[in-house]
Amino acid sequence: MRYAILLMGAPYSHQASHSALRFAHAVLARGHHLEAVFFYHDGVYNAARLAAPPQDEPHLVDAWMAIASEHRVALQVCIAAALRRGLLDEREAARHGKDGVSVEPPFELTGLGQLIDLGTRCDRLITFGP
């Protein structure tokens, strides 16, 4: 089956990100295809390049990046939700005159249209939120 995940919980604040990550691993372990993870609402903080959790806690940002590189899962971040919360890739940082970059590939800033498209194209779109 073709799966997609919608994640709306901030990392470490809520269980949502941890559950979504476990679900993603389970989907892939069962041989299904995970098309993309779409980050919306506070879920966009999962794309924060500068996240530095304590070493004895799971590193969620790195875990998403590992899934993306090992299984070619797209990591799509709602651009409107991200910009509001200070999550900018190189292009947006330049456009808004900011010094730092807080989002880097494989995370990509994209529109909500991508979420709707995933919902239509995939067999299942599973939501995780607080």
Binding site: Y40, H41, A80, A81, G111, L112, G113, L115, I116, D117, G119, T120
Partner: peptide, 30 residues
Amino acid sequence: LLVILRHGPHGSSWLREGLDAALVAAAFGR
């Protein structure tokens, strides 16, 4: 598409972000 809205207009951005998703879906012909 069915969009379920469970939050009021103030206190969080859930309602606004839910409505945004609904409007985008409608604009995409859903």
